[in-house]
């Protein structure tokens, strides 16, 4: 009991002074505002003082990954300049964090702008994907969530390989009361979204999606969750078309959910 209160106290002290800026990402802002609201509910519940820069737009991932490098320069520059002074940036999208970590250094190097480079170097260690922010920065696994449902977790490729999120998502989900986590087979296999790939190679993408859906459906879960709404948009669109009754949900919404305020209320 004493141990619990000491660690609880330590946690409160750690979080009390914590300020974080939310980069919601362009597609979450437009298509999945409920994820943003869930992040706000979750982090404020944990005592984080959240800030939101209303001038934010896009990290440039779509342009960079489609080969529009010249265009992605301006977005990278914009992001770095907008967040250079904040304590921590939290981003509820693993692929956008991967864009910033993996591609910004190369882009900035190519631009040859030394001051931008040092700004990026200083900024990168302060950019967190949501589950990283919880487990690494706040050092919390039990976020006090309640979500009495059967859930399967889809490890988005960028979270899995680029961010190396490892067991962070599983650790967080394990502490959600009422949640029954069903493992997903072939966890390391892409769902076939890949941004513009899903349109440029629509048929191949659909074939990959069909294989992934098979694995998801046999779990018998009510929800498929992930840390990236882009995969979930892909999976959710197909689930809606084919398997009525199973839904996708961003992990932020599960973690934000409590007895008092369930996920549906946030959505």
């Amino acid at each position: 009991m004493i141990y619990y209160s000491t660690s609880r106290l330590m946690f409160i002290l750690r979080v009390m002074a914590m300020r974080a800026s939310l980069f919601i990402t362009c597609y979450n802002d437009t298509l999945f505002p409920e994820t943003g609201r869930a992040v706000v509910a979750l982090l404020e519940r944990l005592g984080v003082e959240l800030d939101f820069n209303s001038r934010q737009t896009c990290c440039g991932q779509m342009h960079a990954n489609t080969g529009f490098r010249a265009e992605s320069f301006s977005q990278a520059k914009r992001f770095i300049r907008q967040y250079q002074d904040v304590e921590v940036v939290v981003i509820p999208s693993s692929s956008c964090v991967a864009m910033i970590r993996d591609q910004y250094p190369g882009l900035v190097h190519e631009l040859g702008n030394a001051s931008l480079r040092s700004e990026l170097d200083a900024l990168l260690p302060r950019v967190y994907e949501l589950s990283e922010f919880l487990t690494d920065r706040l050092r919390v696994e039990d976020v006090g969530a309640y979500f009495p449902h059967r859930v399967t977790y889809h490890a988005s490729c960028h979270g899995l390989r680029s961010l190396q999120l490892g067991d962070r998502p599983a650790r967080l989900l394990a502490k959600v009361r009422g949640l029954d986590l069903v493992p997903l087979a072939n966890l390391d296999r892409c769902c076939g979204f890949g941004g513009t790939f899903s349109v440029k190679n629509g048929e191949v993408s659909s074939a990959m999606l069909a294989a992934k859906l098979q694995d998801i459906v046999v779990t018998g879960a009510e929800f498929c969750t992930a840390l990236d709404n882009s995969c979930l948009m892909h999976l959710g669109g197909a689930l809606h078309r084919q398997f009525v009754g199973m839904r996708t949900i961003h992990m932020a919404e599960i973690l934000a959910s409590t007895e008092a305020v369930p996920a549906e209320a946030i959505a």
Binding site: N28, P33, R37, R241
Partner: peptide, 17 residues
């Protein structure tokens, strides 16, 4: 190419910002 095999959720009324 998208809607051949998948639906797309309509845009919510209110953006996050």
């Amino acid at each position: 190419k998208w809607t051949q095999t998948r639906d797309l959720r309509g845009m919510p009324k209110q953006t996050f910002h």
